[in-house]
Nucleic acid binder design. Sequence first.
DNA 1: ATATGTATCTCGCTC
DNA 2: GAGCGAGGTACATAT
Lengths: 205, 205
Amino acid sequence: MWINNKFPFLLYCNCEVEYSGRACSILENGNYLILYKNDKSLVIHGGDKITPRNYQGKNSNLLVEGDYLISTNKSETIKIKVIHVLNYFRLANWSNNDTIMTKTEKELVNKIYENWYCYVGVKCEEVYKEYMTEHGPVDLLGINNNKYHIIEVKRRKCNLKDATQLRKYLECFENKLGYLAGPDISEKALKYLDKHGCKFISVDF
Amino acid sequence: MWINNKFPFLLYCNCEVEYSGRACSILENGNYLILYKNDKSLVIHGGDKITPRNYQGKNSNLLVEGDYLISTNKSETIKIKVIHVLNYFRLANWSNNDTIMTKTEKELVNKIYENWYCYVGVKCEEVYKEYMTEHGPVDLLGINNNKYHIIEVKRRKCNLKDATQLRKYLECFENKLGYLAGPDISEKALKYLDKHGCKFISVDF
DNA sequence: ATATGTATCTCGCTC
DNA sequence: GAGCGAGGTACATAT
C-alpha cells in the first residue's frame, strides 16, 4: 500500500475530495497537499490562499479503503479519492511549539487601567478588569460616585459590531456611561456611539 | 543555495520565526513546514492545529539573505532563520480549484422566503431578501398592514451575539417584530429574545 | 481602496 | 461538553 499508518505525514497527490457534515462540499479533481498532524487533525491545501480547502479538527480518524482516504470526526466525513501519489513522507519530529504574541488586547486594557484618568477623564474610586456581568465580562469598569464607566477595548479598528457589543453590556447597569476604546474607529460605529451617548477612546501601542 | 526562485514550493526545516507587523510574535526553534503558494501567500505550519503558526497574505515578497528567508507584505515582515533543511521540493501544478459548498445560509433564507406563512405565521403583502437599512442589510423583511417582520437567519445554532445583531436592525423600524431563525438556539439567546419581545424560528435543511 | 458580514470559521477559556 | 469572545482572524462581496 502507498500509505502506512505512521503519522504525522504529508501527501501531495492528484485527488478528489467530498465533504459531508455541518455543511457539504465537493473539491474537483486536482493536485492538493494533504497533512495529517500530531494531534490527528487533517488539512487539505490548494495552490493558493492561507486557509485549507478542507479540514478536520483534532482527534479525527483516518483509514484507507482501497484508493480512498476516509476521515471521520463526530458527524463529519471527508472522503478523498487518491488517483495518483506525487509525494509522500513522514514529517518526523514536527514541533508543536506555539507562537508567542505581543501587542495584544490585554496590553491595551492594562494601558488604560494604569492611566485611567488620562484616557477616561474621570477619577474613579474603583477600577476593575474583566468585570463579570449577566452578559459576560466587561473589559474595564470604573465606578465614580455611583456612576458606572464601562469600556470595551479592541486592539484593531473598532466597527459597528463592537459598538453593539458595548451596548449589550450597558444594559446590565443603571447609572452608566459607555466607551469603546481602540486605535481607530469606523464612521458608522462612531455615529452609533454618538446616537447612544457613548464615547470613543483613542488608544494605541 | 538550498533554495531556488521557483515556486510554489514546500520546505520542511529546522528554523526559528520572527514576525512584526499588525502584532509581533516569536516562534522558537523547531521543525516546521513552510509553504509558498501560487498566489505568493506564505504559511508556516506546526505539528498540530489547523491554523498556521504564521502566515503572509497573497502577493507577499520572499527573498533569501544568507540563512534567512525574509517575507514582506505591506508593513508586515516575517524573518525565518533556517538552521537545517529536512525536505525541499517544488509543488508542481498545484491546483487552485475552490471547494463548492452547499447547505449555506442563503438556502435557509430561500426556504423561509418560499414558505413564509409556514415559518412566520403571518401573511405579508411584501417580502424582501437582503433589505437594506441604515444598519446594513436584513436577511428577510416582511410587511403586513404596516407592521414590519424582521428576520435574521443563521445556518448554525444561534447565540447571544446573533440576538443582539437582530436588535441592531430592529432599531431601524417603528412598528416591528423581530425573529431569529436557525436550526437551534442557545438558552441565553432565547432568554434575550424573550426579554425583547422577539421570536425564534426553527428552520433546518 | 474601504467597509461590512460570514465562516464546516478556529482556538482558548470558563462554567 | 456547551457557550462565549478574540483573531495579525481570512475571505467574499458591495460600495
